[in-house]
Nucleic acid binder design. Structure first.
Lengths: 116, 116
DNA sequence: CCGGCATATCGACGATCGTCGATATAGCTG
DNA sequence: CAGCTATATCGACGATCGTCGATATGCCGG
């Protein structure tokens, strides 16, 4: 299963009950797994937290490459994975591409995991 | 990075602030990524929800193989991944191995994702 | 002690991932 | 227009993953 098969941008918001509430069917399991897979990488987690922490709650690739310690193509790749997963938005202004958290995206995933 | 490098059983409970609160350092990012990676598979998500939904909140491999539609070795493998990640416990009684949710394990992960 | 069952481990396979350097694209500056 | 800079895409590589069938382990009933 490729990280985000064909469709770009998953709507993480639209889903079901927490996974401990009732048995997950195959489709819901695949959707949630896709979201989790996008998050399940140290570089991407750090990117998310760096974007959130950056002034104005947005950051461009140039802000992220050096502190992350990975090459520019790799950073762009991870950002694309996060955008395709619906976790970040990309807005290009001039030469720069600015990334922001999608409000509620992380929370939707968290809500599906929580047991209470 | 192998799914759970050498140490069995991660203590998911002991960690830091939500990832949007402050920038994650490399170690915390790696730990959280390891937990998420364990969850980021449709079969494993369904196993968790099936265990939670099963009577007595526990289930043995024999209960899970057929509804999941995967071979017995594959199911055992996924269960081991979840045990090593600290999400499930295994207790052997006679010929059977019973798996249970670790209370709070999913919630700890969820707490790290939430932005509010 | 033997046969059968439940489970775990092993070894293999094809598929996917994370990373990089090289290159393409696009916008700004002069 | 020419050159620079920021970013994205491409193609490749080694590593990891999910799956399976075959086999090992461990337990129970006769």
């Amino acid at each position: 299963m490729p990280l985000a098969e064909l469709l770009p941008v998953i709507d993480v918001t639209a889903c079901c009950a927490p996974l401990t509430r009732e048995p997950l069917d195959q489709n819901n399991a695949a959707d949630l797994a896709r979201s989790l897979k996008a998050l399940a990488d140290p570089a991407r987690l750090r990117l998310i937290s760096m974007v959130a922490a950056h002034e104005g709650a947005e950051a461009c690739v140039c802000d992220l490459t050096e502190p992350l310690g990975l090459s520019q193509p790799t950073v762009s790749h991870h950002l694309k994975v996060l955008v395709d997963a619906g976790m970040l938005t990309r807005s290009k202004r001039g030469t720069w591409a600015y990334y922001r958290l999608v409000p509620g995206a992380l929370d939707s995933v968290a809500r599906l995991l929580v047991t209470a």
